[in-house]
Simulated scan of single mutants.
Amino acid sequence: MKIFEKPILEVKNLRKQFGEGCEYCREISEEKLEKNYCPKCGTVYACQDVSFEVYEGEILGVVGESGSGKSTMMQSLYFDDQVTSGELYITNYKEGTKNIFEESSQQKTFIRNNLFGKVYQNPMLGLKMDFSCIGNIAEKLISSGNRNVGFMTQRAKELLDHVNIPIFRMKEAPRNFSGGMQQRVQIAKALSNNPPILLLDEVTTGLDLSVQANVLDLIKKLQRELNISMVIVSHDLGVIRMLADRTIVMLNGKVVESGLTDQILEDPKHPYTQQLVQSLL
């Protein structure tokens, strides 16, 4: 079993709501909400005080049904969406002393381009489908400050080779590729600036089983070779079992269980986790 020493990323009390809230629901409690929704004013509490750490070289799994808040949480971490409140610390940024959610949009852009890579469920969100593969990777490198064309070309070749995309196809647009190949190009793009943290949101959903297996094998191989920290979101406990060292379980915007993946699978405590594990057997 891996031993992890210190968190590279720490999230405290992340809250994201859609709607203003009302007197009835402003003090959130289970009795007042229907799942994560206020029946009086319609406000959705997509993330309710979500807290967790990710350690160096660790894969953290996030599992939960649709609407549990896991994708909203990932959007918040990558600044695709603004949080309502909460704290985010990364050791590689100002020695982990600054709440990144309170930083300026310019600083958030810097962090997004230099410290994070993200792979979206829908490749159209992570790739420019009309750009070539090499153009997509260059775009990420340019965003993080690189201007050396020779370096960018070489880096793109290395990465595409790493994710098993034939080099002779590097000038092709991803729109010509299968779903599995598009995900591999997305992974190459996300890794281009050597980020310490990779965020993967439902990356195998919609792929054929054999293609899913290839993508999961690739993720595992990259993590082993690069010792990169990852947060992997999935509704599929089979994916989490294969990849994650530790897992958090989300339901109705809250973390209801967390622990070592093996522990959660063998001895789930929360009724929802028990139900999930039962469905896997």
Rank of each mutant, 00 (worst) to 15 (best):
R175T: 07
N146S: 14
K94M: 12
K98A: 06
A138H: 13
S76F: 08
K35L: 13
G57T: 11
I264D: 01
Y37R: 12
G238F: 03
I232L: 08
I228R: 02
T72H: 08
S71M: 05
K220W: 05
D236L: 09
L160E: 12
E257V: 02
S210F: 12
N113M: 00
V233W: 04
S178H: 01
I264V: 13
V63F: 03
Q182S: 06
V163L: 15
N214Q: 15
Q82H: 13
G64I: 05
V211I: 15
D267H: 09
E10K: 11
G21I: 02
N122E: 13
N146K: 14
M74F: 06
T84V: 13
P39V: 07
V50W: 09
T153A: 15
L115Q: 04
T91E: 09
S229R: 04
K118L: 11
F18M: 08
L200D: 01
N176R: 14
L60K: 02
S234A: 03
Q121H: 08
Q274G: 15
N113G: 05
A213V: 12
K2M: 15
I3Y: 15
K269A: 12
Y272N: 06
V203E: 00
K16G: 07
F168H: 15
V211F: 04
L33V: 12
L276M: 13
A244N: 02
R175P: 00
D267S: 10
L216D: 09
N113Y: 01
S234V: 04
N164C: 12
N114H: 08
S229Y: 09
G64Q: 09
N113F: 00
T247A: 01
E30D: 11
Y37T: 11
M242Y: 15
L207V: 08
G150L: 15
Y37M: 10
V163G: 12
N136G: 04
F52P: 02
L237T: 04
L199G: 03
